[in-house]
Design a protein around this nucleic acid. Structure first.
Length: 213
DNA sequence: ACCCAGGTGGCCC
DNA sequence: GGGCCACATGGG
Protein backbone atom coordinates (compact mmCIF):
# COMPACT_ATOMS: atom_id res chain seq x y z
CA UNK A 1 0.00 0.00 0.00
CA UNK A 2 1.32 3.42 -0.93
CA UNK A 3 2.16 5.79 1.87
CA UNK A 4 -0.25 8.69 1.77
CA UNK A 5 -3.18 10.13 3.64
CA UNK A 6 -5.85 8.40 1.59
CA UNK A 7 -4.18 5.01 1.92
CA UNK A 8 -3.80 5.57 5.65
CA UNK A 9 -7.49 6.33 5.98
CA UNK A 10 -8.34 3.17 4.12
CA UNK A 11 -6.10 1.11 6.40
CA UNK A 12 -7.59 2.78 9.44
CA UNK A 13 -11.19 2.09 8.36
CA UNK A 14 -10.27 -1.43 7.35
CA UNK A 15 -8.92 -2.17 10.80
CA UNK A 16 -11.71 -0.34 12.57
CA UNK A 17 -14.57 -2.16 10.86
CA UNK A 18 -13.12 -5.58 10.30
CA UNK A 19 -13.55 -8.03 7.51
CA UNK A 20 -15.72 -8.61 5.66
CA UNK A 21 -17.79 -5.46 5.38
CA UNK A 22 -21.47 -6.30 5.15
CA UNK A 23 -22.46 -3.60 2.78
CA UNK A 24 -24.93 -4.39 0.08
CA UNK A 25 -22.75 -3.92 -2.98
CA UNK A 26 -20.04 -6.08 -1.44
CA UNK A 27 -22.63 -8.56 -0.42
CA UNK A 28 -23.99 -8.57 -3.94
CA UNK A 29 -20.53 -8.94 -5.41
CA UNK A 30 -20.42 -12.46 -4.06
CA UNK A 31 -22.78 -13.35 -6.87
CA UNK A 32 -21.61 -12.61 -10.35
CA UNK A 33 -24.73 -13.35 -12.29
CA UNK A 34 -26.40 -11.14 -14.84
CA UNK A 35 -29.55 -10.55 -12.81
CA UNK A 36 -27.66 -9.07 -9.89
CA UNK A 37 -25.74 -6.72 -12.16
CA UNK A 38 -29.04 -5.54 -13.60
CA UNK A 39 -30.52 -4.97 -10.15
CA UNK A 40 -27.49 -2.90 -9.18
CA UNK A 41 -27.82 -0.77 -12.32
CA UNK A 42 -31.54 -0.25 -11.70
CA UNK A 43 -30.89 0.44 -8.01
CA UNK A 44 -28.24 3.00 -8.89
CA UNK A 45 -30.91 5.14 -10.54
CA UNK A 46 -33.61 4.53 -7.97
CA UNK A 47 -31.38 5.61 -5.11
CA UNK A 48 -30.45 8.97 -6.64
CA UNK A 49 -30.96 11.57 -3.90
CA UNK A 50 -33.08 8.99 -2.09
CA UNK A 51 -32.65 6.80 0.96
CA UNK A 52 -31.84 3.18 0.25
CA UNK A 53 -34.88 2.19 2.19
CA UNK A 54 -37.16 3.98 -0.26
CA UNK A 55 -35.22 2.77 -3.28
CA UNK A 56 -35.60 -0.74 -1.92
CA UNK A 57 -39.39 -0.37 -1.72
CA UNK A 58 -39.40 0.52 -5.41
CA UNK A 59 -37.17 -2.47 -6.22
CA UNK A 60 -39.61 -4.71 -4.36
CA UNK A 61 -42.50 -3.32 -6.41
CA UNK A 62 -40.62 -3.96 -9.64
CA UNK A 63 -39.79 -7.49 -8.57
CA UNK A 64 -43.38 -8.20 -7.60
CA UNK A 65 -44.53 -7.15 -11.07
CA UNK A 66 -41.74 -9.15 -12.69
CA UNK A 67 -40.16 -5.97 -14.05
CA UNK A 68 -36.80 -6.15 -12.29
CA UNK A 69 -35.07 -6.74 -15.61
CA UNK A 70 -33.41 -4.43 -18.12
CA UNK A 71 -34.97 -6.31 -21.02
CA UNK A 72 -38.48 -6.08 -19.55
CA UNK A 73 -38.05 -2.39 -18.77
CA UNK A 74 -36.64 -1.64 -22.20
CA UNK A 75 -39.63 -3.29 -23.87
CA UNK A 76 -42.25 -1.84 -21.55
CA UNK A 77 -44.72 0.36 -23.43
CA UNK A 78 -46.64 1.55 -20.41
CA UNK A 79 -44.51 4.15 -18.66
CA UNK A 80 -47.39 4.83 -16.26
CA UNK A 81 -46.88 1.41 -14.78
CA UNK A 82 -43.25 2.21 -13.98
CA UNK A 83 -44.36 5.52 -12.51
CA UNK A 84 -46.67 3.88 -9.99
CA UNK A 85 -44.20 1.14 -9.05
CA UNK A 86 -41.32 3.57 -8.58
CA UNK A 87 -43.32 6.03 -6.49
CA UNK A 88 -41.75 5.19 -3.09
CA UNK A 89 -38.32 6.12 -4.47
CA UNK A 90 -39.55 9.64 -5.24
CA UNK A 91 -39.00 11.70 -8.41
CA UNK A 92 -41.50 9.47 -10.15
CA UNK A 93 -41.76 11.74 -13.15
CA UNK A 94 -38.09 11.44 -14.02
CA UNK A 95 -36.83 8.11 -12.72
CA UNK A 96 -38.99 5.94 -15.01
CA UNK A 97 -37.61 7.80 -18.04
CA UNK A 98 -34.09 7.40 -16.71
CA UNK A 99 -34.57 3.67 -16.14
CA UNK A 100 -36.00 3.18 -19.60
CA UNK A 101 -33.18 5.17 -21.19
CA UNK A 102 -30.53 3.05 -19.46
CA UNK A 103 -32.32 -0.24 -20.11
CA UNK A 104 -32.86 0.53 -23.80
CA UNK A 105 -29.27 1.68 -24.20
CA UNK A 106 -27.88 -1.59 -22.87
CA UNK A 107 -30.39 -3.94 -24.48
CA UNK A 108 -30.51 -2.26 -27.90
CA UNK A 109 -26.73 -1.79 -28.21
CA UNK A 110 -25.34 -4.82 -26.39
CA UNK A 111 -28.16 -7.33 -25.97
CA UNK A 112 -27.43 -7.73 -22.26
CA UNK A 113 -25.42 -6.24 -19.44
CA UNK A 114 -22.67 -8.87 -19.66
CA UNK A 115 -21.80 -7.73 -23.17
CA UNK A 116 -21.80 -4.13 -22.03
CA UNK A 117 -19.38 -5.21 -19.27
CA UNK A 118 -16.87 -6.13 -21.99
CA UNK A 119 -16.67 -2.49 -23.06
CA UNK A 120 -13.53 -0.64 -22.00
CA UNK A 121 -13.86 1.54 -18.89
CA UNK A 122 -13.41 5.01 -20.41
CA UNK A 123 -15.68 4.18 -23.35
CA UNK A 124 -18.36 2.71 -21.11
CA UNK A 125 -18.19 5.75 -18.80
CA UNK A 126 -18.48 8.19 -21.68
CA UNK A 127 -21.50 6.35 -23.04
CA UNK A 128 -23.22 6.19 -19.67
CA UNK A 129 -22.65 9.90 -19.10
CA UNK A 130 -24.26 10.69 -22.45
CA UNK A 131 -27.54 9.13 -21.29
CA UNK A 132 -30.38 11.16 -19.83
CA UNK A 133 -30.43 10.93 -16.05
CA UNK A 134 -26.98 9.45 -15.60
CA UNK A 135 -24.40 11.78 -14.12
CA UNK A 136 -20.91 11.03 -12.82
CA UNK A 137 -21.95 9.36 -9.59
CA UNK A 138 -24.54 7.04 -11.10
CA UNK A 139 -22.15 6.20 -13.95
CA UNK A 140 -19.37 5.31 -11.53
CA UNK A 141 -21.76 3.32 -9.32
CA UNK A 142 -22.78 1.20 -12.30
CA UNK A 143 -19.18 0.85 -13.49
CA UNK A 144 -17.86 -0.15 -10.06
CA UNK A 145 -20.62 -2.37 -8.73
CA UNK A 146 -22.36 -3.76 -11.80
CA UNK A 147 -19.45 -3.96 -14.25
CA UNK A 148 -16.44 -4.60 -11.98
CA UNK A 149 -14.55 -1.56 -13.29
CA UNK A 150 -12.12 0.45 -11.14
CA UNK A 151 -14.18 3.65 -11.06
CA UNK A 152 -14.01 5.36 -7.69
CA UNK A 153 -17.34 6.87 -6.63
CA UNK A 154 -17.47 10.39 -5.26
CA UNK A 155 -20.72 10.62 -3.34
CA UNK A 156 -22.03 12.74 -0.51
CA UNK A 157 -20.20 10.66 2.08
CA UNK A 158 -16.90 10.78 0.22
CA UNK A 159 -17.21 14.57 0.09
CA UNK A 160 -17.89 14.70 3.81
CA UNK A 161 -14.77 12.63 4.40
CA UNK A 162 -12.73 14.97 2.21
CA UNK A 163 -14.02 17.91 4.21
CA UNK A 164 -13.55 16.25 7.59
CA UNK A 165 -10.01 15.08 6.84
CA UNK A 166 -9.14 18.19 4.83
CA UNK A 167 -7.99 16.09 1.89
CA UNK A 168 -8.70 18.84 -0.63
CA UNK A 169 -10.00 22.37 -0.90
CA UNK A 170 -12.12 21.89 -3.99
CA UNK A 171 -15.01 19.48 -4.38
CA UNK A 172 -15.08 19.16 -8.15
CA UNK A 173 -16.16 15.63 -9.00
CA UNK A 174 -13.46 14.72 -11.48
CA UNK A 175 -10.73 16.23 -9.35
CA UNK A 176 -11.71 14.19 -6.28
CA UNK A 177 -12.18 11.08 -8.38
CA UNK A 178 -8.65 11.27 -9.72
CA UNK A 179 -7.31 12.16 -6.28
CA UNK A 180 -8.68 8.95 -4.79
CA UNK A 181 -7.94 7.00 -7.94
CA UNK A 182 -4.26 7.85 -8.12
CA UNK A 183 -3.66 7.26 -4.42
CA UNK A 184 -5.14 3.77 -4.31
CA UNK A 185 -4.26 0.54 -6.11
CA UNK A 186 -6.35 0.43 -9.28
CA UNK A 187 -8.47 -2.49 -8.15
CA UNK A 188 -12.27 -2.48 -8.19
CA UNK A 189 -12.39 -4.62 -5.05
CA UNK A 190 -10.44 -2.03 -3.10
CA UNK A 191 -12.55 0.81 -4.50
CA UNK A 192 -15.71 -1.00 -3.44
CA UNK A 193 -14.35 -1.84 -0.04
CA UNK A 194 -13.18 1.70 0.64
CA UNK A 195 -16.40 3.25 -0.62
CA UNK A 196 -18.42 0.95 1.64
CA UNK A 197 -16.13 1.69 4.59
CA UNK A 198 -16.46 5.44 4.12
CA UNK A 199 -20.24 5.25 4.35
CA UNK A 200 -20.18 2.80 7.24
CA UNK A 201 -17.68 4.91 9.16
CA UNK A 202 -19.50 8.20 8.64
CA UNK A 203 -22.98 6.82 8.99
CA UNK A 204 -22.18 4.51 11.85
CA UNK A 205 -24.28 1.69 10.48
CA UNK A 206 -24.15 -1.00 7.88
CA UNK A 207 -26.33 -1.09 4.81
CA UNK A 208 -28.57 -4.07 4.80
CA UNK A 209 -30.99 -3.61 1.95
CA UNK A 210 -31.11 -5.88 -1.05
CA UNK A 211 -30.25 -8.97 0.97
CA UNK A 212 -33.32 -10.68 -0.37
CA UNK A 213 -31.93 -10.35 -3.89
C1' DA B 1 -43.28 21.48 10.86
C1' DC B 2 -39.26 20.92 9.62
C1' DC B 3 -34.78 18.13 7.72
C1' DC B 4 -32.63 14.49 5.31
C1' DA B 5 -31.48 10.62 2.04
C1' DG B 6 -25.19 7.03 -1.66
C1' DG B 7 -28.02 13.25 -7.95
C1' DT B 8 -29.24 15.21 -12.28
C1' DG B 9 -30.67 18.44 -15.84
C1' DG B 10 -32.02 22.94 -16.85
C1' DC B 11 -31.65 27.32 -16.22
C1' DC B 12 -29.02 31.83 -15.42
C1' DC B 13 -25.07 34.77 -15.46
C1' DG C 1 -17.35 27.21 -15.57
C1' DG C 2 -19.88 27.84 -11.21
C1' DG C 3 -24.36 28.82 -8.60
C1' DC C 4 -29.18 27.95 -7.92
C1' DC C 5 -33.34 25.34 -8.35
C1' DA C 6 -37.04 21.73 -9.12
C1' DC C 7 -37.81 17.17 -8.74
C1' DA C 8 -40.97 13.65 -4.55
C1' DT C 9 -41.12 10.00 -1.30
C1' DG C 10 -40.96 8.06 3.62
C1' DG C 11 -38.72 8.32 8.22
C1' DG C 12 -36.92 10.81 12.24
Amino acid sequence: MRNNKICSLYSKFRKRHGLPVKFWPNWCAERKDKRLREIIAIGAILTQRTSWRNADLALENLQRENLLSLEKISKLKDLEKLTSLIKPAGFYQTKPKRLKTLASFIIDNYGNILNFKKEELTIARKKLLSLYGIGPETADTILLYALDKPAFIIDEYTKRLVKKEKLAKVFDYDFLKSLFGKNLPKDFRIYRDFHALIIIDLKGEQGSVMKRF
